[in-house]
Design a protein around this nucleic acid. Sequence first.
DNA 1: CTAAAATAGTCAGTCTCTCTGACTCTTAGA
DNA 2: TCTAAGAGTCAGAGAGACTGACTATTTTAG
Lengths: 146, 146
Amino acid sequence: MTDQLDIGSLLFIAYRAMGDRVFAAITEAGYDDVTMAQFKLLQRINADGTRLSELAEATQVTKQTAGYLVDQLEAGGYVERGPDPTDARARLIRQTGKAQAIHPIAVAAIAEIEAEWTAHLGKRRMDQLRDGLARLREITDPYLGR
Amino acid sequence: MTDQLDIGSLLFIAYRAMGDRVFAAITEAGYDDVTMAQFKLLQRINADGTRLSELAEATQVTKQTAGYLVDQLEAGGYVERGPDPTDARARLIRQTGKAQAIHPIAVAAIAEIEAEWTAHLGKRRMDQLRDGLARLREITDPYLGR
DNA sequence: CTAAAATAGTCAGTCTCTCTGACTCTTAGA
DNA sequence: TCTAAGAGTCAGAGAGACTGACTATTTTAG
């Protein structure tokens, strides 16, 4: 059972390996008050601002959980809540400059890890892996039905 | 940022999609007292019995966390703790028949999801995906250095 | 046009998982 | 032998996730 893992466990092992290292890079760069859960949420906020419900759906947590994480990000100065001009019930969550500064750090860490993975798998297999995962997202990302 | 996700997020989305469904299948089959965290641990117990430290390392949690989960699995009748004949400090954790009965349910659920994924990607791309992930495990699974 | 239903978000409470730190018991090494 | 390392447990704390109940606004149906 240990040697022949299912594809789900294989996905998790790779995800975890990358996630831990990207997160470590961000922490080491001085952003040590952002947690993994907060960072995942941050990644799903787009430039025009994103609603709490959308973030909750994208990250597959309840609105309450998303609200809890946004509270913390707001307290840390990473996001701002503003009104949504099209709907007075809703509020738009936007990244601040502080949050945007994290982006290049994450990108650099990801590039480094991807380079290691490419060195191990070879460029062709790495491209196939990325392509397969991107296509799979079409049927596995609930948020893509937005 | 939402449309062009990094490979880490892509891995997570696919993992989550599979994990949720396998877990739902197990729950629906009546094993509704097993949690996701417990199931992940269960998957890493091999036929000869596995030490707590090994489980902790394989699932990337502390020994305390692994112990907490094993306590619950033991209370639910899914695992048993026995002595390790080769080392009196250690104990071997073994799956009971009840835990083994979960296995075919998980396998069936995984097969169903993989069939859907194969239908979407095509057999060639699916095989490449599985192959890529398995090879990646060589450098991303800390437990493989056992 | 108004009343009912749906949607966006918050507040309160709880539970699970995870961690750190301190401890015991056993084994292995100098 | 006796000291260091390893296996596991106990205790305490915090993060993140949930359900349920609530307010305010928008949409839909009659």
